[in-house]
Amino acid sequence: MFKHLTIIGIICFLMMGAFSVYAEKSTELYIPIGQSPGLSGKYTVMGKIDQINPQNQTIKMSGASGSYTVKMTKNTSIYLDRSKAQLSNIYGTLADCKGGDLVEVKFEDNSHSKPIEWIKVQKSQ
């Protein structure tokens, strides 16, 4: 009986999204570039956009930690950070990303090999 329960328990454990990341995503929109708690400076990468490839949904960027070509998916959130201009941050699209924009990206994994979960793009308006 207990063995049965254990097996079901483990199945249940796996079914309940046990391996998801337990962080709240929605308020990330309003956190300015470089200030995401526990992520910025540790797991995110900051830099400037060098090139955008809309067909491949990729952005080439470079910064203090080197150059990266980051891949976006339909699940990637694009946040336009307008807090420096004292304007409300808004959701954006790839079309809002321009060469030279300061960006911060968070990869889906910490080894930076997977697509990005979100990108923040600094905008003056």
Binding site: Y22, A23, E24, K25, E28, G38, L39
Partner: peptide, 12 residues
């Protein structure tokens, strides 16, 4: 279980 932003810790 996902109430905290950033790294998801109580600190955040």
């Amino acid at each position: 279980g996902d109430g905290s932003p950033g790294d998801g810790t109580l600190r955040s």
